[in-house]
Computed example of a mutant assay.
Amino acid sequence: MAIHPDQRYLEGLLKNDTLIVQEIYQRFSGRIKHFILQHQGTEDDAADIFQESLIDIYNQAKHKQLQLTCPFEPFLLLICKRKWLNDIKKRGRQPVTKKLDDVYDVGEDVFAAAEQTIQEESRTAFIMSQFERLGEKCREILRLTLTGEAQEKIAATLGVTYGYLRKKKSECMATLLSYVQAQNF
């Protein structure tokens, strides 16, 4: 696989390049902080996890010649999430069986998961762009039916019959599907 241009972040960490390190903090720490705050953490927890993850990545780059084949952000996010979930387990006094080698062994599974995350985000963004092409009524019907609410209740809310709602939902889904298929995504 080709080396991703974000390899520059690893090189910056290895060289202790102040500008690159600052860029990493400015660009990526906010998302990590948001994730940890949403999952029972504090700002201090977020700062610790972020820094520990950067140290792990540095060690991988220095001792195992880590080469990025995916963007840095999802890779970093995956490392931080894994560390945070491990930390939560430790706090809950659930045993965490983790060999010392595992701390420094990021492995292909992380790369594969990062690649998969990127692909899923790209596909979701594409489908949402096609969704926006639908008419207002179709978008409203699909949004409401995707909430899991009973279709009878949705029909009543929209002031239409249950049969009409089912038919219209089917037509809207078919239109959306045709938009997606037409783009061969």
Score class of each variant (00 low, 15 high):
residue 2 A to P: 14
residue 3 I to L: 09
residue 6 D to M: 06
residue 8 R to W: 02
residue 9 Y to D: 01
residue 9 Y to F: 13
residue 10 L to I: 05
residue 10 L to S: 01
residue 11 E to W: 00
residue 15 K to C: 04
residue 18 T to L: 06
residue 18 T to I: 11
residue 20 I to G: 00
residue 28 F to P: 00
residue 29 S to A: 08
residue 31 R to K: 14
residue 36 I to N: 00
residue 36 I to V: 07
residue 36 I to K: 01
residue 43 E to W: 03
residue 49 I to Q: 01
residue 53 S to R: 01
residue 53 S to I: 01
residue 58 Y to Q: 07
residue 59 N to G: 03
residue 62 K to F: 12
residue 64 K to I: 09
residue 68 L to W: 03
residue 69 T to H: 11
residue 71 P to Y: 06
residue 81 K to Q: 10
residue 83 K to N: 11
residue 89 K to D: 07
residue 90 K to H: 04
residue 92 G to T: 08
residue 98 K to H: 09
residue 99 K to S: 12
residue 101 D to N: 11
residue 101 D to W: 10
residue 103 V to R: 06
residue 105 D to Y: 10
residue 105 D to S: 11
residue 107 G to L: 07
residue 109 D to N: 11
residue 112 A to H: 13
residue 126 F to V: 06
residue 130 Q to M: 13
residue 131 F to E: 03
residue 134 L to T: 12
residue 137 K to Q: 09
residue 138 C to R: 01
residue 139 R to V: 08
residue 141 I to G: 02
residue 143 R to Y: 09
residue 143 R to W: 04
residue 143 R to F: 11
residue 150 A to I: 13
residue 159 G to F: 02
residue 163 G to R: 09
residue 168 K to H: 11
residue 169 K to L: 02
residue 172 C to G: 02
residue 173 M to R: 08
residue 174 A to Y: 04
residue 175 T to W: 00
residue 175 T to N: 03
residue 177 L to D: 15
residue 184 N to T: 14
